[in-house]
Design a protein around this nucleic acid. Structure first.
Lengths: 220, 220
DNA sequence: CAGTATACATACCGGTTGGTATAGTGCAAG
DNA sequence: CTTGCACTATACCAACCGGTATGTATACTG
């Protein structure tokens, strides 16, 4: 046996990074390999196809994001704080991944999956699973808000969770098309607040600009 | 001069139809030509590039959709009816364009533009212009609702119009990824109603399933 | 030291892409 | 009848695509 290398992981991360910046279709296997400092031979040693690489890269990347989301939704926050954390998370995310030509990267899982249209079952599958993941977290958030009696009416958390995801995705894609992070910042909070429909007395509470979004997670 | 042919228009319509069903990237010039019964020579006689064809096809298609939207938003409807018309319009649209492998086509302008990411300025430009068009109509709707005093608070119609567009696009893209028109039907009305935030007394009024969505436009 | 499985490199494949060069065709004006 | 132009058909290109075949270096195992 040869000693294990980090080639595989390198490919996963490079793929995410590149596809993130442009799109699944416009990034070739060759480019991914070049950027990762790996040759095609190695690529197809670890992955059976480009679509499969994407699928696994999504899974891999989710493991990272999951930790961040767990911090966001830590029980050490009140539901209202969690809501604000989510908003900040989305924007931070976009800001950290912004590149010159593409100030809004959008959700990589999704933008790729969306275009797949007919072909590439594996890609669509990845987009679905990542969406399911995101919705699950949204639902938890809504449930928390509802449990505290902060919401008007008697909404179905499952549906509101979906609505949030649909809206956020649409907003990010729009921001991407317009190449405008400003648009995202303008509409994100307003859209989310309208979808969850907080009771009047809790609405639009100003949030400090420096408010830490990630706190130490509770020790079990 | 030779008698004018419909070659150009044929190409525009074929392009829309094909790209609609799958995606901009996965439909080649050759396929468009074949489907339109035209050869590549003719294609590049009328259009300088694939991207330009797409751009012009969008403009062409918008002229058709514009008429439908004008009917939807005819002053002969009350604002509430206009709102319901919009909801029905979106769903009818998807239902009429559904094909086996793709029950949700999404907005063709947008799904194409979204994926463009880095490349193809002309494609992104088309997506932007078509979005602007859509938002304009949304804004008009919100203004009507607000003018009748049907909305809570004092919302900015411009923003709500954007939110509606962002949500609808996100929903359609999600429906596309899940290949589920059912999802779209479930979430469309709820999302829209939450975003516009109608006063309680006007909310969720049941709408007859057979309600005509297109009425005779007012004679000037 | 032989055997073997892993890890990677080189070179190449057939197919498709968007785009072009060119020759030909139909038709109207001179 | 012929010239000229709008239009169309054929043939072709270089570039690139995802994927593969084959070879080799490494390193553990018996």
């Amino acid at each position: 046996m040869r000693k294990p290398t980090d080639t595989r992981e390198k490919l996963l991360e490079t793929a995410i990074a590149l596809i993130w910046q442009s799109s699944y279709a416009s990034v070739g296997v060759a480019e991914i390999c070049k950027q990762a400092g790996v040759t095609k031979g190695s690529f197809y040693h670890y992955f059976t196809s480009k679509a499969e690489l994407f699928y696994e890269a999504c899974q891999h990347h989710w493991q990272v994001k999951k930790k961040e989301l767990d911090a966001i939704y830590s029980p050490s926050f009140t539901p209202l704080q969690q809501l604000e954390n989510l908003i900040r998370f989305v924007i931070d995310q976009q800001e950290s991944e912004a590149v010159d030509e593409n100030p809004v990267s959008g959700c990589p899982f999704f933008t790729a999956g969306a275009q797949s249209g007919c072909s590439e079952l594996k890609v669509r599958q990845a987009a679905q699973e990542m969406s399911d993941n995101a919705v699950t977290y949204n639902v938890a958030l809504v449930r928390n808000l509802k449990a505290e009696g902060l919401l008007n009416g008697d909404p179905a958390p499952q549906q509101i969770g979906r609505l949030l995801h649909e809206f956020i995705q649409g907003l990010l894609v729009t921001g991407r098309v317009y190449r405008s992070l400003e648009l995202v910042k303008q509409d994100l909070r307003e859209g989310i607040y309208r979808l969850v429909d907080l009771k009047a007395e809790y609405r639009c509470q100003p949030v400090a600009d420096e408010a830490p979004v990630v706190a130490a997670p509770l020790p079990a």
